[in-house]
Amino acid sequence: MKKLSIVVPCYNEQEAAPIFYDTVHGMEDKLSSVELEFIFVDDGSKDGTLDVLRGLHAKDERVHYVSFSRNFGKEAGIYAGLEKSTGDYVVIMDVDLQDPPAMLPEMLSYIESGEYERVATRRVDRKGEPPIRSWFARKFYKLMNKISSADIVDGARDYQMMTRKVVDAILAMGEYNRFSKGIFGWVGFKSKWLEFENVERVAGETKWSFWKLFIYAIDGIVAFSTAPLIMASVFGVIMCLVAFIFILVIIVKTLILGDPTSGWPSMVCIILLVSGIQLLCMGVLGQYMAKTYLETKKRPIYLVQEEE
């Protein structure tokens, strides 16, 4: 019998973890064609999440967990879970049940058919989210698909089931700065997309603020596109041309009108504009240099404090 590993990143989820386990455990009759393996990854939680995971392991030997020495982020949690998984098939799920476990049998059927190597999911709506956050999310997906080589579907979730071949391909990308949605799309393989409506958390509160999502989006753009660097170069060329034109205008105006001091307010505005563009371009370059700097350090993606 083949094995299905369920990878579940957790951060301060002491309330949701046991509910998640009970829910998936109650579906075993619908997943009878595979043996289940639970891989919980405690991402440096500050509540009682680790104690809950210890209890689940003591109750069910199929439950395993990895506890980080500190909070390394969900991307590190996903990578650690994939590394520890031993199943022929692996599925990544959020512990808050916003990834409906009811979809697991259908996902498994597509994988077992041999027609697909990966079954991914996407939300078709964003009910319950602030409108401004939803708008930025949709624009982000459109932008990423235009400027990068990674195929990222609008509303794509980390919730997906993969064969061992796909998992090995993802693990082979051992980069420190990880953006899983981009990695999943970049590795390719024949994929099936399933849609579902947004589901509210079963317990606890979301750990993703608008600011964290914004930073995550920037990381994704830097990780899978060099378009910002090209834009910075284009800005530089344009501003050089504009500056040259202004120089000619000032020279001609001075020779004809003999009034070199007029127009200083507009000059101040121009200086501020050019300075702002320079700082923007420097910031873009700085982002790429910072990512390169971190990659060259060869730091581990995560550190383990305890595992079973």
Rank of each mutant, 00 (worst) to 15 (best):
C281V: 08
V252L: 11
S266N: 08
P265S: 00
M267P: 01
Y293H: 03
L255F: 14
L257Q: 12
E295A: 02
V249Q: 09
E295C: 01
Q278N: 12
V252A: 07
L280Q: 06
Q287L: 14
M289W: 15
I301K: 09
V252R: 01
V252N: 03
L280D: 00
K297P: 06
Y302T: 00
W264K: 05
L280I: 03
I256N: 01
Y302V: 01
P265I: 00
S275C: 09
I250P: 00
I271E: 09
G258Y: 06
V249A: 10
E295T: 00
P260G: 08
G263L: 03
E295F: 04
S262G: 09
T254A: 01
W264F: 15
G263T: 01
V249M: 15
I251P: 04
C281G: 11
C281Q: 04
I301W: 08
I256R: 05
R299M: 12
I277L: 07
K297F: 14
L255W: 06
G283Y: 09
Y293M: 02
L294M: 15
I270S: 06
I277G: 01
L279P: 01
S275V: 07
L279R: 09
L272Q: 09
V284D: 05
I270N: 05
I301V: 11
R299S: 13
L303V: 10
K298N: 04
L285M: 07
P300S: 03
P300L: 04
I271G: 14
I251A: 12
Y302W: 10
Y302M: 02
Y293L: 10
T296Q: 11
G258N: 03
G258M: 07
C269P: 06
E295D: 04
V274Y: 13
T292P: 03
I271Q: 11
S266R: 09
Q278W: 13
Q278G: 14
L280W: 11
M282C: 12
K291L: 12
V249E: 13
T261L: 15
I250L: 10
K253E: 13
M289S: 05
M267R: 06
I256A: 02
K298D: 04
Y288E: 04
T292F: 13
L257A: 15
T254W: 07
C269A: 15
W264E: 06
L248A: 02
L255D: 02
Y293W: 15
I270M: 11
E295Y: 04
T296N: 15
Q287G: 03
V284N: 01
L279E: 05
S266Q: 10
G283D: 13
K291N: 12
C269M: 15
V274M: 07
V249C: 11
L272G: 07
S262F: 08
L280G: 04
G258A: 02
I250T: 08
C269V: 13
I256D: 01
L280V: 04
G276A: 13
P260F: 11
G258L: 06
K253S: 12
T296P: 05
P260D: 09
I247V: 12
V284R: 00
M289Q: 12
C281A: 10
I247A: 06
I251E: 10
L280T: 00
L285S: 02
V284F: 10
D259H: 15
S266T: 02
I271W: 10
I270V: 11
I271P: 03
L248T: 05
S275M: 14
L303H: 12
C281P: 00
L272F: 14
T254G: 00
K297M: 14
T261Q: 10
S262W: 12
M267E: 10
I251F: 07
K297Y: 08
